[in-house]
Design a protein around this nucleic acid. Structure first.
Lengths: 168, 168
DNA sequence: CTCAGTGCAAACCGTTTGCAGAACG
DNA sequence: CGTTCTGCAAACGGTTTGCACTGAG
């Protein structure tokens, strides 16, 4: 992790420390180290990646502790948990410029981009009004080809039934 | 499974049989039985539920075979795989009246409702035009309280940091 | 007959849990 | 000093895989 990022992450680590104190929980070295990695990255990190970065900076922290700390970070609402269907979870802090954003996931290279969509708010309002469903949170993910993969000529094969649309 | 539903599912099972033949794969009793259960239900079934329904109708089919058949159903594009964050997958056939729909998941009772949202198409078009990302498929899920749970007085607790919005 | 499918059980893998020892407050 | 955390390793649970046997074509 770069020094600049570590520095930028500091106030966020303090927020986490505050949360822990509010809950009467100890602020340990391990918890601070995990928080520092998560807040110091703008990526969507997996537990393995977090463990790797901790190891790079000389911190040898058990996976169980990382999982337990991530639970706390998620509970504190400072971090969001994502499942992009890879078979494991990814974690992203919520302290960026864009408080609510959606995800574009490239099915070719796995890259995750973010984008804003005010339309979802409209959908949530409509769902509440028409169906009485009270939205709490949502998840909008678009899977496809990122600009780079598309431009390098990758295309998506189909493989489905040749003519599935005669269902009536 | 009701007789009416079993009957309605027939043409879809034939579509699956056609897909298998197109691929040069055998049409076995087990594959037909699994397909019949999936096409005969309008719900989002888990593998355990599928196994249970098969057992109810006297079909004793191993889990491995169910998984392998679901792979084929998904590849044929006749069935969609979902992950609502429960720790396992659910499967839903795509032969209903609503070819594209989104999901409302109640965080209290787990019920899954469907709804249409044309707004997502707008979002996909914008993403392609502005970012060069080529959409293939998407997933819009709204988590919250369904009408019934909301009306019976359930509310959502917070538990996050008391004041997380002082990040600058 | 032959090749792929099936069922069983073991392997897999991300995640969770139990417990002895260490550390926070 | 008591309570909570940590690290290790074992357990867990959904899913996948290997292999001998069965069945479809």
């Amino acid at each position: 992790m770069s020094q600049a990022k570590a520095k930028a992450a500091l106030p966020f680590i303090n927020l986490f420390a505050r949360y822990l104190r509010e809950q009467g929980l100890p602020v340990t070295h391990q918890r601070e180290a995990v928080a520092k990695v998560v807040f110091g990255s703008e990526e969507h990190l997996s537990v393995d990646e977090i463990e790797g970065r901790l190891r790079e900076e000389g911190n040898r922290i058990g996976k169980a502790t990382i999982y337990r700390t991530l639970d706390l970070l998620v509970k504190s609402r400072l971090v969001e948990e994502h499942d992009f269907g890879e078979g494991f979870k990814r974690y992203e802090h919520r302290l960026s410029r864009q408080p609510i954003h959606e995800h574009l996931i490239c099915v070719e290279c796995g890259k995750v981009q973010e984008f804003r969509s005010d339309e979802v708010q409209v959908v949530e309002d409509r769902v509440e009004e028409e169906l009485g469903f009270v939205p709490q949170r949502h998840r909008l993910e678009i899977y496809g080809l990122c600009k780079e993969c598309h431009e390098s000529g990758v295309s998506l094969e189909d493989g489905g039934l040749s003519c599935p649309i005669e269902t009536v």
